[in-house]
Computed example of a mutant assay.
Amino acid sequence: MGHFWTFLTYVHSLAGPTVMLLYPLYASVRAIESPSKLDDEQWLAYWILYSFLTLMEMVAAPILQWIPIWYQAKVLFIAWLVLPQFRGASFIYEKFVREQLRKYCGEVGKDHPHKNKFTDFLQPKKGEHEAY
Rank of each mutant, 00 (worst) to 15 (best):
K110Q: 09
F96G: 10
Y10H: 12
P124M: 07
M20W: 01
G127N: 08
V108I: 14
M56I: 15
W5C: 02
M58S: 12
F91D: 05
A89R: 09
K74Q: 05
G16A: 15
K95S: 03
V59G: 04
Q72S: 15
A45V: 04
F118E: 04
T18S: 07
L25N: 10
I92Y: 10
L14N: 07
L14W: 04
W70A: 13
L53G: 07
Y50F: 15
F118P: 00
L8W: 04
P35E: 13
P84I: 11
L53H: 09
P62E: 06
K126C: 01
H112F: 00
M20I: 15
F121A: 02
A45M: 00
K126M: 02
W43G: 01
V75E: 08
D40L: 12
E94Y: 12
P62G: 02
G127F: 09
P35M: 09
A73I: 15
I63P: 03
K37S: 05
E33H: 14
H12E: 12
L101D: 01
P24E: 04
P17R: 06
A89E: 06
V97G: 01
L38S: 10
L76N: 10
P24K: 12
L44C: 01
K117A: 09
E41I: 08
L14Y: 10
D39Y: 07
P17I: 05
V97F: 06
I48M: 02
W70L: 04
D111A: 11
S51Q: 05
A60V: 08
Q123K: 12
L83A: 11
M1E: 14
Y93A: 06
Q123M: 07
G109S: 02
A27I: 00
F96Q: 00
C105D: 06
G109P: 02
F91C: 13
K37I: 13
G106L: 06
S34V: 02
K103M: 08
P24T: 09
F121N: 10
A27G: 03
L76Q: 08
D120T: 14
H129G: 05
K125A: 04
S36Q: 10
L49E: 13
L76W: 00
L76G: 05
L8S: 00
F96M: 11
K74I: 04
V82G: 03
K37L: 04
D120W: 06
E41R: 12
S90A: 05
K117N: 07
A61L: 08
A61K: 14
S36M: 08
L38K: 11
G88D: 03
F4Q: 10
I67A: 12
L64M: 08
H129M: 09
K74Y: 11
H112N: 03
P35V: 14
P35C: 11
G127I: 13
Y71E: 13
S90R: 14
K103E: 04
L83Y: 10
D120F: 00
Y23R: 11
Q42W: 00
Q123P: 04
H112L: 11
G88N: 13
Q123G: 05
A60G: 06
F77C: 00
Y104V: 08
E57T: 15
G16M: 10
M56Q: 13
K37A: 12
